[in-house]
């Protein structure tokens, strides 16, 4: 469904991603793990069009979307749920959801999707007219996820959905992502919480300093000694650097 070939991304002179190739099949849940600054978020931004890659190609359903605008990419069916939730703080919960369906024209479908999400997250219904910035971190995460779903995406990119959330909310968030996948939506996940992410995923890619160093079925990576020492903290070995 999504193919990335030899992707290079830079911020000025700084190379954030270099020669990255990866593949996500329809219906899969794929995780990118790696430490801070490994290039995970950059990769997602390149996919959703927020960042123009300096080289390489990104194909979605066979169409080259490299360097396309976020609007075009969203219209093709890729929603990006950004790091730090990024709800519109002074807009109401309802308006945030409506921003999620900004490109859609089918009023009836939008209303139905909104109703379904409210049913799924009653707290959002309760806070419907409240400014999103006054919501708790967990509530904002539910809103950010719902907002991404309002575009009826085929592929959702989640950037650090567990960041800064209480442990029970983290669990809830991962449950929701699992549900979204089980409803047929393809998911690409970027996480520092590698253990939880790998448990959830079909496959994973390990990024280190902009390069992909490992990839494979999530189960296999969970057992990999390097991954264990560097990202899972389960080995006795202390990771170097």
């Amino acid at each position: 469904m999504l193919t990335i070939e030899n992707l290079d991304c830079r911020y000025g002179q700084v190379i954030a991603v270099s020669g990255l190739s990866l593949e996500i099949a329809k219906g899969e849940l794929v995780t990118l793990i790696g430490s801070n600054g490994a290039g995970k978020s950059t990769t997602l931004k390149a996919i959703s069009g927020l960042l123009k890659p300096s080289a390489g190609r990104i194909l979605f359903e066979g169409v080259d979307i490299t360097g396309a605008s976020p609007r075009e990419i969203l219209a093709r069916g890729i929603a990006h749920c950004p790091e730090g939730r990024r709800v519109f703080p002074q807009m109401s919960v309802e308006e945030n959801l409506e921003m999620g369906s900004f490109l859609r024209r089918d009023a009836a479908g939008i209303a139905a999707d909104k109703a379904r999400l409210y049913e799924r997250f009653p707290i959002l219904l309760e806070r419907r007219t409240q400014a999103a910035g006054t919501l708790s971190g967990g509530e904002q995460q539910m809103l950010a996820i719902s907002r991404a779903l309002m575009s009826r995406p085929k592929l959702v990119l989640f950037d650090e959905p567990s960041l800064g959330l209480a442990p029970n909310i983290v669990e809830r968030t991962f449950d929701i992502i699992r549900q979204i996948r089980s409803e047929g939506t393809t998911v690409a996940l970027v996480e520092q919480n590698a253990y939880a992410a790998l448990e959830l995923s079909d496959r994973a890619y390990v990024l280190e300093q902009g390069h992909m160093t490992l990839s494979g079925p999530a189960r296999g990576l969970l057992a990999d000694p390097h991954v264990q020492s560097a990202y899972l903290g389960t080995s006795d070995a202390i990771p170097v650097n």
């Binding site: 959703s48 069009g49 927020l50 605008s69 976020p70 609007r71 969203l74 219209a75 929603a79 990006h80 950004p82 990024r86 519109f88 703080p89 002074q90 807009m91 308006e95 409506e98 921003m99 999620g100 900004f102 490109l103 907002r147 575009s151």
Partner: peptide, 23 residues
């Protein structure tokens, strides 16, 4: 209006507004 919503969204978070499809 929808334009107003796009305007406020852009004001509050430019990148995220772009992700919603706002030009």
């Amino acid at each position: 209006t929808k334009f107003g919503k796009a305007l406020r969204a852009t004001f509050q978070d430019r990148d995220t507004a772009a992700l919603m499809g706002v030009r």
